[in-house]
């Protein structure tokens, strides 16, 4: 098993992360939580089915759930816009974040999107503004947030529900600033270099763990779709246990400490050089 994991290239993982039979956000929600009540709509314009969300229970605790939802076949994918949320999806997410904040529900998000919808209508409706407001709502969310990257963590469209106190990734999930194809065509001037780009951009869970950008890697003994449903059940159990422990830890210090720690966590992210010994000014 270990040898098999070692041998997996980043591109192998990209392929697994995008596999049509890979479990989707709702599969995990239904396997991990009880009493999930899906809530719809942004109360302004429409319901975006690329984003799912609502309250649920984990043990004796009420939580708020958000997720990017992909389909499993063409019909489902057209319905879910291939998991690419539009502004109304992010505004629905924001509405549910505010509801979760009001009741101090821990927030658990399932990230699985190639990116935010890049269509002209999404631009007209303020895609950038909707994403930015989601990020801002999360940086000050007054209860613990755990984000789990289950498939593709694609750019700003993923980060909009991905700002968290703890970030978990399934072993074969990917998380990147731009898709390997887009990076390859921009930086290598050749979309065919996507596998090289995926490697260079270090988008795999083991790489991101090593870079300190995620907190925990959830092992997938087999790619979670290969020997379904057994593999999926194992991964879901592992996730459920991880979530229960994390939420306990994150709640322990109280709201002020939680928000301060989240702020410090994000203010510290980055890698730069400072030529002056103590930083000028």
């Amino acid at each position: 098993m270990a040898a098999e994991q070692q041998a997996r290239t980043t591109w192998d993982r990209v392929t697994i992360a995008r596999h049509p039979q890979r479990p989707r956000a709702l599969d995990f929600v239904n396997a991990i939580f009880e009493d999930f009540v899906e809530l719809h709509g942004d109360r302004q314009y429409r319901d975006d089915r690329a984003i799912i969300g609502g309250p649920a229970r984990l043990g004796d605790q009420s939580v708020m759930i958000l997720g990017n939802q992909k389909g499993r076949n063409t019909r489902e994918n057209l319905d879910r816009n291939f998991g690419m949320a539009r502004p109304e999806g992010y505004r629905k997410a924001m509405r549910l974040m505010r509801m979760g904040a009001q009741f101090r529900f821990p927030l658990i998000t399932f990230v699985d999107t190639p990116g935010a919808d890049p269509g002209p209508r999404s631009e007209e409706h303020g895609q950038a503004f909707a994403i930015a407001e989601c990020i801002q709502t999360l940086t000050t969310y007054p209860a613990p947030i755990v984000s789990i990257v289950i498939g593709e963590g694609g750019s700003g469209g993923a980060l909009a529900i991905g700002v968290a106190d703890r970030i978990l990734m399934l072993e074969n999930a990917i998380y990147s600033v731009a898709s390997p194809e887009a990076s390859a065509s921009i930086l290598w001037k050749d979309a065919g270099q996507a596998p090289a780009a995926a490697e260079a951009m270090r988008i795999s869970a083991p790489d991101l763990m090593e870079l300190g950008l995620i907190d925990r890697l959830i092992p997938e003994p087999q790619p979670a779709h290969d020997d379904a449903p057994e593999a999926f059940a194992r991964t879901a159990t592992e996730l459920r246990q991880a979530l229960a422990t994390l939420l306990d830890i994150a709640t322990a210090g109280g709201e002020t400490a939680l928000l301060r720690e989240r702020q410090e966590r994000y203010l510290a992210i980055g890698s730069w050089l400072d030529a002056s010994p103590n930083g000028n000014n």
Binding site: A132, Q136, V177, R202, Q263, L267
Partner: peptide, 22 residues
């Protein structure tokens, strides 16, 4: 985002937002 810095650059979106929270 600065693609050459990978996920570090994506996270600057959250970092700068957190900075404006101050």
């Amino acid at each position: 985002a600065r693609m050459q810095e990978g996920l570090f650059s994506l996270m600057q979106m959250a970092k700068t937002t957190a900075a404006f929270d101050l």
